[in-house]
């Protein structure tokens, strides 16, 4: 069942005219993905891999529709080339709603291995990131989405286990 927080996230995406979303699933993002799929103003297309998803998002944006990707932080390694040579090179705005696995509260040890590299990688790639650890921070999502469109850059919204456990 989607929570109020899931709904607040999707409402913000709709308010900011994100009309095309691709997703690679994560348990934490299941409620958001369910609402995105059900929302009539969003074209939702699941992708098999995050770099494929970035291609889809780039195409939609070139066609005049704002796009976004829903993914796990573990996929950052898969997507680096696409982020740099497609999204950044052609100045395509791309909000990345990321499940920040491997932070405090994580139950799967292997997820921590990639969590350790998540912020350093984003920093190295000059991708602005916003760490959400409390559900109240959803209120800042509108501003982040506007920022991405304004500067035509990818931005990362890192939602960790504390964020999701504080969700209502």
């Amino acid at each position: 069942m989607p929570t109020k927080t899931d709904k607040a996230i999707v409402d913000s995406l709709v308010r900011n005219e994100i009309g095309y979303i691709t997703s690679v699933p994560c348990k934490q993002l299941a409620g958001v993905i369910e609402l995105v799929e059900a929302n009539e103003s969003i074209f939702h297309i699941p992708s098999n891999k995050e770099d494929e998803g970035m291609g889809l998002c780039a195409g939609a944006y070139l066609g005049g529709t704002r796009s976004a990707i829903i993914m796990q932080n573990t996929a950052l390694g898969v997507a680096i080339n696409s982020l740099v040579t497609l999204i950044q090179f052609y100045h395509i705005p791309l909000p990345m709603l990321i499940s920040y696995r491997g932070e405090v509260g994580e139950k799967v040890a292997c997820q921590v291995e990639m969590a350790i590299h998540t912020k350093p990688l984003l920093k190295q790639l000059n991708i602005p990131y916003y760490h959400f650890y409390n559900s109240d921070q959803v209120a800042t999502l509108d501003g982040i989405l506007q920022h991405s469109q304004m500067c035509k850059k990818p931005v990362a919204i890192l939602t960790d286990a504390s964020f999701w456990s504080s969700a209502s």
């Binding site: 297309i45 889809l56 780039a58 195409g59 070139l62 066609g63 529709t65 080339n81 090179f89």
Partner: peptide, 18 residues
């Protein structure tokens, strides 16, 4: 100019929004 493999994905995304 870069990004091996994504031509079909870019094309599909573009076809879906217009």
């Amino acid at each position: 100019l870069g990004t091996m493999g994504l031509c079909s994905s870019i094309g599909l995304g573009l076809a879906q929004v217009q």
